[in-house]
């Protein structure tokens, strides 16, 4: 009887403090809850990613569709071209010139080792036309205009200005997004050409004026090496980059309230703008590789 009672007490104790008598039991429990939490987190991440991707996709589709739907208004587009394009010229001019100059300098000393300085013109032109022109132009536009677009639209979202537009029966896509899309797609190739032009001039300045290369050799090498395919590749890249930059930067601002980093207030806008700039820059470099791989 006494043993029985003692046993009953013992089993009760096990039921109350299982970990005291059975370490594995508790360990197993912790492990299971931990695993469940990881799975839950993973599920959340995947859902968030899918939601964002879907939202951005629909946004792109809607924005492009709105470009072709009336009312067509030229003035807002011109104003945006002025902001994205014209006001970027100075920055593009500077970066283009110095990129060309450094290409001329590095290229000259590298080519000299093989005794083929005569190829400097073609090296500068082809690397600018195909790669550096479009990529660096896109990166400069992201920094100058992309961040501004994202912050501007984000603040409009935060202060209910976009809701106000909808309630005044004005389509926010038509009113805010379309002019920026058109302006970016138009401006980016033009800016790229300005970049290329000043890059080639910069290379010429360093190669010919400073390092004493023959100017005829510089341009003749360029003339024979750079073909239409190079220009075409640069043009396609500039066009695609223009679309990517405006898409990512405007969508991030437009859906600020749905962004995890967004939330509310000034900090939300700053975080979302940073996100947009980083994401746009990385996307540009990835797509640069993809387009090159497809076209070469």
């Amino acid at each position: 009887m006494c043993i029985l009672v003692r046993n009953v007490i013992f089993f009760e104790e096990i039921a109350i403090y299982p970990s005291k008598y059975c370490r594995n039991f508790q360990f197993g429990l912790i492990q299971t809850t931990y695993m469940l939490k990881i799975l839950e987190k993973l599920g959340h991440e995947i859902l968030y990613f899918l939601e964002t991707a879907g939202r951005m996709g629909i946004f792109l589709f809607q924005s492009i569709a709105c470009i072709f739907l009336p009312p067509y208004k030229l003035q807002p587009i011109i104003r945006q071209i002025y902001f994205i394009g014209t006001r970027s010229i100075f920055v593009i001019l500077f970066t283009g010139t110095f990129t060309g100059m450094v290409l001329g300098l590095q290229g000259y000393y590298t080519l000299q080792k093989f005794g083929s300085e005569g190829l400097l013109g073609s090296a500068v032109a082809v690397s600018l036309l195909r790669e550096l022109g479009p990529v660096l132009t896109a990166l400069m536009v992201i920094g100058r205009a992309g961040s501004a677009m994202c912050a501007e639209i984000g603040i409009m979202r935060n202060s209910e200005q976009i809701d106000a537009l909808e309630l005044m029966a004005i389509d926010p896509y038509q009113f805010i997004i379309v002019p920026k899309f058109v302006a970016s797609i138009v401006s980016m190739p033009l800016l790229t050409f300005i970049f290329n032009f000043f890059g080639i001039l910069g290379g010429f300045f360093v190669g010919v004026s400073l390092l004493g290369l023959n100017s005829g050799t510089y341009f003749q090498g360029m003339y024979s090496a750079a073909v239409w395919a190079d220009v075409e590749m640069g043009l396609i890249k500039a066009f695609v980059f223009g679309l990517l930059v405006v898409w990512i930067c405007t969508a991030k601002g437009f859906f600020l309230h749905r962004e995890r980093a967004g939330g509310f207030g000034a900090e939300g806008v700053s975080r979302t703008t940073t996100n947009a700039v980083v994401m746009a820059s990385v996307t540009i470099l990835v797509w640069d590789y993809l387009i090159s791989a497809m076209m070469l």
Binding site: E152, M156, S159, E160, Q161, D163, A164, E166, L167, M168, A169, D171
Partner: peptide, 20 residues
């Protein structure tokens, strides 16, 4: 919805005028 909203007027809590 946009057609119906032509009949709406709204005064927001924070007014929501376009600040630019």
């Amino acid at each position: 919805l946009r057609k119906i909203r032509m009949n709406f007027g709204v005064l927001f809590q924070n007014v929501a005028l376009f600040d630019s």
